[in-house]
Write a protein that binds this DNA or RNA. Structure first.
Length: 883
RNA sequence: GGGCGUUUAGCUCAGUUGGUUAGAGCACUUCCCUUACAAGGAAGGGGUCCGGGGUUCGAGUCCCUGAACGCCCACCA
């Protein structure tokens, strides 16, 4: 695997590349391209991060750690938008922790994905070479799957690298690696020793196309409009009939009883008699069993223990024979008499025809029902009598329930906790054997002489029972989720007692989609508790899934998948990440449409051009990345922007910690675009009219900008690295390991003054939409407003385009004279007045309401009083404008 | 048969413990090619928060109920 080796080797030699200069364009930071072209630099930074080893975790660092293992993508092809969402959420979290100084591990890897991958390769073989797996034989076929794995795995690694996933490549794992395979054997044997593994013949979910057993979770139920066939079974020795109702007439060939309810007086007299099974001419008993519901159909049920889970249980209760009339390929067996060899649906047709011909078909009713399909290939599942390996889940689940209830794992959004608990409380045993070739062989050996089974970690010399050396390993492999269930500790070295396990286990956080909550999350929890003695992760965050524009789940069979690399090539990776993040509200699925992309690309472009403005104007002064003391800052806009930045930093940190990724992203967006670009830079431009103070101003701008880049980095790693390096405060160090802004002192007086200034400027701009030529206005208002306006008259002149004269009017709101207002504005103002009058009346009503005054908290009342005063000022202002 | 989610501006969605005139992006209207950015700037229009009841001084937010859509679980012959 070329790419993978390269990634590793680059990672390995990070220590000798400390003076590495990544891009020649760094040489002249004064030059910056007019057009934002992410394609020019993204790939290089992706490589550089790996070469520098920025993402390596250190098991020996004494620092507080943050660890997270990736939900390993299946090697069934390439990653889709859902992966990109997941990786973006994880990456934001991981980068943020790394920048906060944590010893951060994001462990990457992939899953062999048993059935799924085997199926992909089978299809490919059939299509390209017209070969079936049997044509190749097991060994050769598995070789082909490994070839495919290299191909698919390579594509996946490349995608992850391209989108900036900050994983520790040196710790990448694959579920079929030697170490992980050892973990699998250890756990299987461990479960066996605990008496939690058993093998036996049971009715299992069988996929006739994949020709393997499946667990309950791998069966997808689908509602279909079925039929209920009513069939007459003649009662032996009488003229009577019992009419049974069935959704699967072909299974009647394997009937071994007919059941009636003991409370059902209609049929009670027939108990003890037998019926003659039509078509097969077999006599079968009439039994009493609660499975027959007098309310349903005719109240009589045919019993087919070999082909229906209910009937299987009934068969056990009544010791009925099991006649298997359908085989592993869903064809009728020799026991199906003349129907032998037919496909199950052909057989159904023929059986119904024959019954009709014999006058035994009473009626056919439409009957809504659900049919189980193979989750992978959508073939209708056949309940099949089959010898399989099972894990007894109850004791494992109980430990998991206890751990979750004790709060050892926090699950967010919280409703998933209940869902998970419900499943654990109602858990069934887990069929873990699969009749596949791709996967971990079950570590069990069958003795050819005494038929006993030896379960062992290593290939045994001889049978544990009779000592014979004539052993053959079980042909089955384990459910792919068996190895996935060990992922949080098998990847860290289990069963060896490694430093990694000691340091990084339990992992800090698991971020995953809800579609694998049971399949994966539940099993990791159970197996982690059982074999590590502790939960596999302290926190779980369940994200939504990505849907297409029609809200359909994305899947290859639907053909609605999107290759992230196509999209990132078009819009830039940072833009795609941003688009995903801004729509990633907790608990919500994401509807993927490309029309979200232009605006986030515009945001990236905005960052790019803000820096362009800086680079074009500044001397290449070295910026010390330090936040100035609030008291030492001279200018209002600086005090204000630092206050805003500190607030943003805190909001973002809190948002990331509580998985409110969209809030983090929106805060970044708003801070950078509205505060920094639209106000701060616009105000700063005005400072450069004369030479005095230029250095200080630039230092401030650069300082803010540099800090803002660090603020944005967890969401937009590429553009922030590119610009940060051009700014070059870290001298060859990556922004990925710089500090995340921690917030700090805010100056509320400055913030308020700035808000006043913003209001004045915005008001004037609004007034001027009708009469742009007006250059002179008289401003009226409270002394504090006048003072602000006077202090910033230059800003007002330049940003609003007017020269002000002032008229203090204590007790009155901001107003301007010297300008005509348009009819449109007049209408708007009239409407605003109406609105205000309503609000004022409402406030007054509240303030005179005894109940409100006595029960509402003081700060709410104060707030309303204050607001009321403002409303009244505003109202006065608006009225005077209309006058 | 159980359980869960969603329903807020034309579109896609935010709205953490109930609290002061309900927000964003896109789209739309008007003006501006002002040398960082037209992938831009400025200003603006647009919402009976799905319906009905209730709790409360106060409900988009809590409770009950109904509807529509979606998802998950379930051995519904």
């Amino acid at each position: 695997m070329e790419l993978f080796e390269w990634l590793i080797s680059m990672d390995e030699k990070h220590w000798l590349s400390s003076n590495f200069q990544p891009l020649d364009i760094l040489k002249d930071s004064m030059q910056i391209e007019k057009v934002y072209e992410p394609q020019r630099f993204e790939s290089q930074w992706a490589d550089w991060w790996v070469e520098k080893g920025c993402f390596r975790a250190d098991a020996d660092s004494g620092k507080p750690m943050f660890s997270l293992v990736i939900p390993p993508p299946n090697v069934t092809g390439s990653l889709h938008m859902g992966h990109m969402l997941e990786h973006t959420l994880i990456d934001m979290t991981v980068r943020w922790h790394r920048m906060r100084g944590y010893n951060t591990l994001w462990l990457p890897g992939m899953d062999h994905a048993g059935i799924a991958t085997q199926m992909v390769v089978e299809r490919k073989l059939l299509k390209e070479e017209n070969l079936r797996k049997q044509d190749l034989g097991r060994e050769e076929f598995v070789k082909r799957v490994w070839q495919w794995k290299e191909e698919s795995g390579g594509a996946i690694l490349n995608q992850m690298r391209q989108v900036g996933a900050s994983v520790d490549w040196s710790r990448s794992r694959f579920t079929l690696d030697d170490g992980l395979s050892k973990a699998v054997r250890e756990v299987f044997c461990g479960l066996h020793e605990r008496g939690l593994v058993y093998r036996g013949e049971y009715l299992v979910n069988w996929c006739p196309r994949c020709e393997t057993a499946l667990s309950d979770l791998e069966v997808a139920h689908e509602d279909v409009e079925g039929s209920l066939w009513h069939i007459r079974y003649p009662v032996v020795g009488t003229d009577e009939y019992l009419i049974v109702a069935t959704t699967r007439p072909e299974t009647m060939l394997g009937d071994t009883a007919v059941a009636i309810n003991a409370k059902d007086e209609r049929y009670l007299h027939l108990h003890g008699k037998t019926v003659r099974l039509p078509l097969m001419d077999r006599e079968i008993p009439i039994i009493l069993d609660d499975m027959a519901d007098p309310q349903f159909g005719t109240g009589v049920v045919k019993v087919t223990p070999a082909h229906d889970p209910n009937d299987f249980e009934a068969g056990r209760r009544h010791d009925l024979p099991r006649i298997k009339v359908i085989n592993e390929k869903a064809q009728m067996t020799a026991l199906a008499g003349e129907y032998s060899g037919l496909d199950r649906y052909e057989a159904r047709k023929k059986v119904v025809e024959a019954l009709e011909a014999h006058g035994l078909l009473v009626k056919i009713e439409p009957h809504p029902m659900s049919v189980g399909k193979c989750d992978r290939c959508k073939t209708v599942i056949e309940p099949m009598l089959s010898e399989q390996w099972f894990v007894k889940m109850r004791p494992l689940a109980d430990k998991a329930i206890a751990a979750i209830n004790e709060g050892k794992i926090d699950i967010q959004p919280e409703n998933w906790k209940r869902t998970l608990l419900y499943w654990l409380e109602n858990i069934h045993d887990w069929c873990v054997s699969r009749q596949l070739w791709w996967g971990h062989r079950i570590p069990a050996w069958h003795c050819k002489s005494c038929k006993e089974i030896t379960v062992a970690r290593e290939t045994p010399e001889k049978c544990h029972s009779c000592g014979s050396t004539d052993l053959v390993q079980d042909m089955d492999v384990l459910d792919t989720w068996f190895s996935s269930g060990l992922w949080p500790f098998s990847t860290l070295g289990f069963p060896e007692k490694t430093k990694e396990l000691e340091v990084f286990y339990p992992t800090s956080l698991m971020i995953m989609g809800y579609e694998i909550l049971y399949l994966w999350c539940a099993r990791m929890t159970m197996l982690g508790l059982e074999f590590m003695g502790d939960v596999p992760f302290r926190n779980v965050y369940i994200h939504g899934i990505v849907r297409d524009a029609d809200k359909q789940k994305m899947s290859k069979t639907r053909g609605n998948t999107v290759d992230p690399l196509d999209i990132t090539a078009k819009y830039g990776t940072d833009a795609v990440r941003m688009a995903l993040l801004t729509s990633a509200a907790p608990g919500a699925d994401i509807v993927w449409t490309e029309d979200k992309l232009p605006s986030s690309r515009a945001f990236a472009n905005k960052i790019w051009n803000a820096s362009r403005f800086l680079f074009m104007n500044m001397e290449r002064a070295k910026v010390e990345p330090q936040i100035p003391e609030m008291g030492t800052i001279e200018f209002l806009e600086d005090k204000w922007i630092w206050s805003r930045l500190h607030a943003a930093a805190e909001t973002i940190s809190k948002a990331i910690e509580s998985y409110r990724f969209h809030e983090a992203a929106q805060t970044m967006w708003h801070f950078f675009w509205s505060d920094f670009c639209d106000w701060y830079i616009e105000l700063k431009k005005l400072r450069f009219k004369d030479e005095s103070g230029i250095d200080d101003n630039w230092r401030n701008i650069l300082n803010v900008f540099e800090t803002a880049l660090r603020l944005l980095h967890p969401a937009m790693p590429f553009i922030t690295e590119e610009l940060w390096q051009r700014l070059n405060p870290g001298e060859g160090k990556s922004i990925a390991v710089a500090n995340f802004p921690v917030g700090g002192e805010t100056d509320s007086a400055a913030v308020e003054e700035m808000e006043r200034l913003q209001e004045i400027i915005t008001r004037i701009r609004d007034l001027k939409t009708a009469q742009r030529s007006v250059k002179q206005l008289t401003m009226q208002g409270e002394p504090v407003l006048i003072e602000t306006a006077k202090n910033h008259s230059e800003a007002i002149r330049r940003l609003a385009g007017v020269e002000l004269t002032y008229e203090e009017t204590p007790g009155q709101a901001l107003a301007f004279t010297g300008i005509e207002i348009s009819d449109d504005q007049r209408a708007r103002i009239a409407k605003d007045i109406e609105q205000l009058e309503k609000v004022i009346a409402n406030s007054n009503r509240q303030l005179s309401d005894e109940k409100f005054m006595s029960r509402a908290p003081a700060h709410i009342i104060d707030g309303i009083r204050k607001k009321l005063a403002e409303y009244e000022l505003q109202l006065a202002k608006l009225r005077s404008e209309l006058a």
